[in-house]
Computed example of a mutant assay.
Amino acid sequence: MLSSENRLRRREDFATAMRRGRRAGRPHLVVHLRDGTDPHVAEETPPPPRAGFVVSKAIGNAVVRHRVQRRLRHLVRARLAALPAGSLVVVRALPGAESVASEQLARELDAALERLLGGVRG
């Protein structure tokens, strides 16, 4: 379970990450990242990174969708420390994600985050 401060809940936050952020696609998921650098906001302590998940009905019924979301949430929770402070991350599951092993999803998530974070840093 992600802590309350690390969860995306508002539609506007999802839209910001998906429309204004960068994205990296993989065979079973797409990761959207909006880094937390905003020159117009002067905060002393930046907020923690926040993550949200999109698992559509194309994945399967409610039981299957929730299982995929739990697996993704577990994988993202382990990687929150590597994300920049104030960043917004949306992980969108694609059809076929329900039948892939967690290790494969972890590799795809790592590859997507590496691509996105490499572009932010460099």
Rank of each mutant, 00 (worst) to 15 (best):
H66E: 01
L29E: 00
V30Y: 05
L83P: 09
E12L: 05
L75A: 09
T37N: 09
R23E: 02
D13A: 11
G21D: 07
G21R: 06
K57V: 08
P84D: 06
V91I: 10
S4K: 13
R34Y: 00
G52L: 02
K57N: 13
R67V: 02
G122P: 14
A15F: 00
R10N: 08
A85K: 15
M1F: 05
R79Y: 07
A101M: 10
P95E: 05
Q104A: 14
V90F: 04
R22H: 03
R71M: 12
A101C: 10
L29P: 00
G122A: 11
E98M: 10
A42W: 03
L109H: 11
V54Y: 02
R20F: 06
S3G: 15
S99E: 09
D13P: 00
E5Q: 14
A17K: 01
M18C: 08
E103T: 15
E44M: 00
R26C: 03
R23K: 09
A111T: 11
R71L: 14
L116M: 12
N6Q: 04
A101V: 08
Q69S: 14
P27N: 00
L72V: 02
R22D: 02
D110S: 14
R23F: 05
P47M: 03
V31E: 03
R79L: 08
T37V: 15
A85R: 15
R77S: 14
S3R: 15
A97G: 06
G21V: 06
L88S: 07
P27R: 01
G25P: 00
R9Q: 08
N61D: 11
L116V: 08
S3Y: 10
S4I: 13
S3A: 12
E98A: 15
L88W: 03
H74T: 14
R10M: 05
E44D: 10
H40E: 12
R115Q: 14
R50A: 04
T45A: 13
A42C: 06
G25I: 01
L88A: 10
A15S: 09
A51C: 06
R50P: 05
Q69W: 01
A101S: 14
A62L: 11
P84G: 12
A112I: 01
R23H: 07
R23N: 03
L33I: 01
A112R: 01
E12R: 06
E108P: 11
L83K: 09
E98Q: 14
Q104V: 15
L88I: 06
A111D: 13
S56P: 13
G118Y: 03
A17F: 00
A17M: 04
A106S: 13
G96Q: 11
E44H: 05
R7P: 02
R115F: 08
L33V: 03
I59T: 05
V89M: 12
E103W: 14
A81Q: 10
E98V: 09
A51S: 04
D35V: 00
G60H: 01
Q104K: 13
V91P: 04
G60C: 01
G122E: 10
S99D: 06
A112K: 02
L117A: 13
N61G: 07
L29N: 00
E108T: 05
V41Q: 10
A82V: 15
L109D: 12
A78S: 06
H66Y: 12
A62W: 08
G118T: 11
A111K: 12
A97K: 04
L8I: 07
A51K: 00
R107H: 15
L117K: 14
H32S: 00
P46A: 07
R19W: 01
L94R: 07
L29V: 00
R115Y: 07
E108C: 09
D110T: 14
R121K: 14
